[in-house]
Design a protein around this nucleic acid. Structure first.
Lengths: 224, 224
DNA sequence: CGACGCAAGATTGTATACAAGAGATTAACA
DNA sequence: TGTTAATCTCTTGTATACAATCTTGCGTCG
C-alpha cells in the first residue's frame, strides 16, 4: 500500500513514508501512548520489510514520539505527568520567544498573516467545531513561529509541539476551552499588531501555561 | 575494536556505541563539517556491518549533527552562518530560561554546586589552559542546567549545544576570550547566588549572545 | 500458597545479498 | 576545444537470513 508512493512524495524513501505514516497514527490518536509497536507486525501491515520500519521507529524515537528499550522493542512514548509539565514549560518559553522575535522582526506581510489567522480563529471559535478550532489554532501559532524568521526555533517548536499534540488535542477539544483560549489569543494578537515585544511574550507564555494546567488536569482525570 | 564493549557500556547495543564514537569524532573535531561519511568505510573501520552504522548515522542526522540526502549519502552537517546564529539565539534563550528556573527552584545544594563550578572556572581562567577552561566552563553551564530541575529543558539544551560544540570549542580556545567570559560568569554567578531570576536570565542571555558574535566573527575569518 | 529458577518461544540486533538510483567518466558531435 | 549525452561504476535503499537476548509460562522448591 505504501509501496507506490504518491507523486507528492516523489524523491522520498520508503522509510520516510513509513515514518510519516506512523507519526500520523500517533499524533492523530489512532495508536495510544504505551501501545506496543511490533516491527514485524508493522512491516506486514505496510507490506514492507523490517529494515525501513526499524529506521522509521529509530527516527521517531530520537524525536521523542516513540520509546525504544534495547532488545525489548518499541512502543508509543508515554510521558509521565512530570515529563508533560516540563515539556509544556519549554514550549511556553520557546513560543514566548517566537512572539517576542515576531514583534521585532516579522515583516508587515507576516504580521498581516498572523492577523488573518487570528481572524480565522475568531470565526471558528464562534461558528466552528472544536476540531476546526484546533486546526486554525495551530495555524495561528504557526504564523507566529514563521514571523520569528528563525528556522532553528521553528524546528525546535515543531518537534516539541509534536510530542504534545496527542494531549493538546484533547485539551483544545474540551468544550469551554475554545472561548477562554480565544480571549487569550486576542491579547496576543493585539500585542503583536502593535509590536509590543514584552507584552506579546508574556501573554504567549501565560497562554501556553494555562494549556499546561488543563493538560495536567485532564490527564489526571483520564488516569493517563 | 568496538565489538568488545567496555563494561561501562554494558547493556548497550553496537549501534549505540558506533553512534557515540562518530559523535565524539564530530564534536571533538576529528572529522570536519562537510566531510563525507561513507557507510561501508565506517563499517570496515569499526569492524562492523553497514546496518548498525546506518542506524547511527540516521540518529545523528535527526539530532542535526549529520546531513543525509536520500541516495546521496551522509556527511557531517555544515550549518550556514545563518543557521549558526539562529541556533545560538535559541540556545541563549534556553540557557536564560535555565538560569531563571535555577533561581526559582534550585536546591541549596544545587546552588552550592553551581558556586563550586564557578570557583573552578575562576581558578582555570587564572592558571589553566584554554582547553581546561573549556571543560570547566561546560560544567558551570551544566550545573545551571541541572539547577532548573527540568529534564526536558536539559535534554533540549544538550542536543542544541552539541550541534554548536564544533564551533564553540574554537571560540573558547580563543586567547582573550577566557577572561571576558569569566567576567560575564561572575555576574551570572552573583545573580544566581542571590536568586535574582531576571538578572540571571538577562546576564546569561547576553553571555551566550556574545559567544555567538565571536562565533560569527571567527567563522567568517576561517571562511567556514 | 508463594517465590524462584529454568526452558521454550518470540522478538530484536546484526550481517549479508540484491536492487536501484546518483555521480563520474568517456566518447561523440558541434 | 567545449559541450552534451550515454554508459558504467559505486553507493545507498531494501529484503532476507542468522544470532543473541529478553519475556513468558511452567515446574519445582521452600
Amino acid at each position: 500500500m505504501l509501496r507506490t508512493a504518491p507523486e507528492s512524495m516523489a524523491g522520498t524513501t520508503l522509510a520516510e513514508r513509513i515514518e510519516a505514516r506512523i507519526e500520523a497514527d500517533i499524533v492523530e490518536g489512532r495508536v495510544l501512548p504505551g501501545d506496543r509497536l511490533d516491527e514485524e507486525d508493522l512491516a506486514e501491515r505496510l507490506s514492507a520489510s523490517r529494515t525501513p520500519v526499524r529506521e522509521a521507529l529509530r527516527k521517531l524515537a530520537s524525536s521523542g514520539l516513540v520509546t525504544i528499550r534495547p532488545r525489548a522493542g518499541a512502543s508509543v512514548a508515554r510521558p509521565t505527568m512530570t515529563d508533560l509539565v516540563e515539556l509544556f514549560e519549554v514550549v511556553a518559553e520557546l513560543e514566548a520567544f517566537a512572539a517576542r522575535l515576531s514583534c521585532a522582526r516579522a515583516s508587515d506581510a507576516q504580521l498581516a498573516e498572523i492577523a488573518r489567522m487570528h481572524a480565522l480563529c475568531e470565526h471558528e471559535a464562534a461558528n466552528g467545531t472544536a476540531e476546526s478550532y484546533f486546526e486554525v489554532n495551530r495555524r495561528f501559532h504557526g504564523a507566529i513561529w514563521d514571523g520569528s524568521n528563525n528556522s532553528a526555533l521553528v524546528e525546535q517548536l515543531r518537534l516539541a509541539d509534536r510530542r504534545l499534540s496527542p494531549y493538546r488535542r484533547h485539551i483544545t477539544f474540551h468544550p469551554g476551552r475554545c472561548k477562554d483560549s480565544q480571549s487569550e489569543h486576542r491579547k496576543i494578537a493585539t500585542a503583536l499588531a502593535t509590536r509590543s515585544a514584552e507584552a506579546a511574550a508574556t501573554e504567549m507564555r501565560d497562554h501556553v501555561m494555562i494549556l499546561s494546567e488543563d493538560a495536567v488536569q485532564l490527564a489526571r482525570n483520564l488516569r493517563l
